[in-house]
């Protein structure tokens, strides 16, 4: 019960960045009612029949369409698919490493924004504001070139760092909300037992925050998979880049983009199902 409430709070908090509208009067009342519009697909879970069945329809539809095109119209679709899928390792690599980077940066940012130290607080606040106020693509290209010019970093590494920095701010907000969602009584109980601030944080606050924050991080993971396509702007050979190179050779723009879209769709749907299963597992373990 308690945990669900926390997760609800967190979800409301993290969704704010992608929110359509929040009725603040209702929020101020008791039950935070949010119109949730995440930019990832809905994560299907058992018990949510309608999400699960729409997930199935979309997933099977995408697979059938992709296979159908490849098998029954191999000219040009087979070749398009074989070329685009070559970008998958780059997409995966960027996504996985960038999400790890974002979690690390986000943890520090989140800690910074709840810190009682004024300057640390200010720094993480400014960082979050900056990142939230600039289009992702603009930041990405800027950081990428900055890293290349001043640190002479190689393309892949620079792209991963750039994405980590961009997503780290959102992750920081998630971590902050997670920490703040832990009831004050927890800190008070630990303090009253003679535990120091650091001990309280490590043994009481952090373990609870991790649990509350994991579903939101799962969501970010899915967003990251899609937004990693932005690195195609940075001359990295990911799925989208492979597709665009193919278009510039053959001018088959619609056909290629159809395949690219289907590949991304299938990957995101699989990932969202995995995240959903993981969450269910987590819930079960918590009794």
């Amino acid at each position: 019960m308690e945990k669900e409430k926390l997760e609800e709070e967190i979800r409301t908090e993290t969704i704010r960045k992608k929110v359509v509208s929040v009725d603040s009067a209702v929020l101020a009342a008791q039950k935070p009612q949010t119109i949730t519009m995440t930019d990832g697909p809905l994560i299907p879970k058992k018990g949510e029949k309608h999400v699960l069945s729409s997930w199935r329809v979309t997933f099977i539809g995408a697979i059938v369409l992709l296979l159908g095109l490849i098998i029954f119209k191999p000219e040009p679709y087979r070749q398009i698919f074989l070329i685009c899928i070559q970008g998958a390792p780059v997409t995966f690599q960027v996504t996985v490493f960038a999400i790890i980077g974002a979690v690390v940066i986000g943890t520090f940012t989140g800690l910074g924004s709840v810190s009682s130290h004024r300057w640390i607080n200010m720094i993480s606040g400014v960082y979050v504001e900056l990142i939230r106020g600039i289009p992702l693509l603009v930041q990405l290209i800027f950081i990428y070139y900055a890293l290349g010019r001043f640190l002479h970093l190689e393309g892949m590494v620079a792209a991963i760092i750039a994405l980590s920095i961009c997503f780290g701010a959102y992750m920081g907000e998630i971590v902050r909300a997670g920490i703040q969602a832990i009831p004050k009584g927890q800190t008070e109980a630990a303090t009253a037992l003679g535990m120091s601030k650091t001990q309280t944080f490590i043994h009481v606050i952090l373990p609870q925050t991790v649990k509350v924050v994991l579903p939101a991080i799962g969501n970010e993971f899915i967003s990251m998979l899609k937004d990693s396509s932005l690195v195609s702007q940075l001359a990295l050979a990911d799925i989208l880049r492979k597709g665009r190179e193919y278009i510039s050779r053959t001018f088959l723009s619609l056909e290629t983009m159809l395949i690219v879209a289907l590949i991304y769709l299938i990957l995101t749907l699989v990932l969202s199902r995995l995240v959903g299963l993981l969450e269910e597992r987590l819930h079960k373990n918590n009794g």
Partner: peptide
């Protein structure tokens, strides 16, 4: 001081994890 003075709260405040 806090070691020597125990406290019990209305809402228990046990550590759920």
């Amino acid at each position: 001081i806090r070691e020597e003075v125990g406290m019990v709260f209305q809402s228990f405040n046990l550590f759920p994890h």
